[in-house]
Design a protein around this nucleic acid. Structure first.
Lengths: 232, 232
DNA sequence: TGTTATTCGTGTTTATTTAACACAATTATA
DNA sequence: TATAATTGTGTTAAATAAACACGAATAACA
């Protein structure tokens, strides 16, 4: 504590917007708080940054505790830093969003955190500034997904183009032309035909694709224009 | 301190990448440190978040102390949070970049901070992880300027299209077609003809435009595709 | 066993946008 | 008055996006 003596140290939290997709709607993983403060109310999943912990490790820890998953896709959004945003004590919150396959996470981990999947359209009031965090996270998701192939992070390993389209329609709450969407996705060359078909279908079975991970890594930062500006 | 007893409070700093443009090159405002730690070395402009200060106010304070300007365009980039990134004491750094008109800021403020404009291409080694911060800020500037009309923030109030083109060529370190660039910029309808011309020119005097601030606000979040993906 | 309703994959046509290139006008200087 | 540099605008071909059509697969059901 020798060199920066006159400065106050501050509590630093992380809060995470976890997005999922059930085939129809975008969902959020929210915490029904069974702890203080604000016990009984809804909030985002969060946690404090520990003093001996890298920021990135803290993010992974919090996501692991919630989902039992490692290597989750996440992205920092912004830091919320109003003096009075937490009435208990001043706390910075570094806010990020994560995308997970809704069927792949560990149920017991979620249960231990008292976490539930809530349809984005029915989301309850959240504590503190968490409502604003969700708003901004959704904006950011829409922005990013219009240009970069992050949608795949919300789907199972094998998926069909119609499923991917439903996801994009849910994200933008807008219908998309089936034929143009398919062409646009295939033109990215990011999908590999698995040779399998979606056996769940009651009509024509769609082709199951998987992501070409190598191309995905390489092309990730290129612009793709998945969604036209008017829809976005 | 009652409710979150077992958590350590952490020092929180802000570090800022200030970009400028002198008509030819992108420049950075860097600090020749005449204080500890790392006295004598180069660093970004920064400061600590005060305990009674909103995060956004801290950003504005730091930018004001450096430039004497208020209402500077800035954008949060990310938080750097490795445990050992500052050898003196663990310090989070919330990193952001700012765009200013290189001719509009207050010289005395800069002098008081021992700040200098350094050509981006000749930038010296910086302390801690500040080199990485600059790299990421430049990436972000390129990303953002390809899609949104932020370039104007680096220019004087009245400017010509050739000046704007030189700015974009400096940002992307790539030549652009004069005729296509002009058409693309004008098609945004963001520029207002001032009726004046650039009297400094020794050849044909270019039209001086100014930004249509109202349209700028409204259209800011729309995608513009100023720069093709191949150049970016 | 054939019909129906639904969804999937692919194709076509037209309009729009981008990229590449040309020429005439302006201005200080020689 | 000619020259060199730069600016504003125009043209054309290629690429992309948007709007729309059809045939194939599949389960349900008559």
């Amino acid at each position: 504590m020798a060199n920066y003596p006159h400065i106050n140290r501050i509590l630093v939290a992380l809060d995470c917007i976890v997005f999922g997709f059930d085939g129809e709607d975008i969902k959020l993983m929210l915490i029904k708080r069974n702890f203080d403060p604000e016990r009984g109310k809804w909030s985002l999943m969060g946690g404090f940054l520990e003093s001996d912990e890298d920021l990135e490790d803290a993010t992974n820890r919090i996501l692991y505790d919630l989902t039992g998953l490692k290597d989750i896709y996440f992205e920092e959004i912004k830091t919320f830093g109003k003096v009075n945003r937490d009435p208990v004590e001043r706390t910075l919150s570094i806010c990020f969003f994560a995308l997970i396959n809704i069927h792949a996470h560990d149920q017991d981990s979620a249960k231990a955190q008292n976490a539930f999947w809530i349809n984005l359209k029915n989301r309850p009031e959240l504590i503190f500034d968490h409502n604003e965090m969700v708003d901004i996270a959704l904006e950011r998701l829409r922005y990013k997904a219009a240009l970069h192939p992050i949608g795949f992070e919300l789907l199972p390993e094998k998926f069909t183009i119609p499923q991917l389209q439903k996801l994009y329609e849910a994200i933008y709450d807008s219908p998309l032309d089936r034929r143009n969407f398919s062409r646009k996705i295939l033109s990215t060359k990011l999908l590999l035909d698995t040779g399998e078909k979606n056996e769940n279908s009651t009509t024509k079975k769609a082709i199951l694709y998987k992501l070409d991970k190598e191309k995905y890594q390489k092309q990730f930062n290129a612009f793709h224009y998945f969604i036209s500006d008017s829809v976005r």
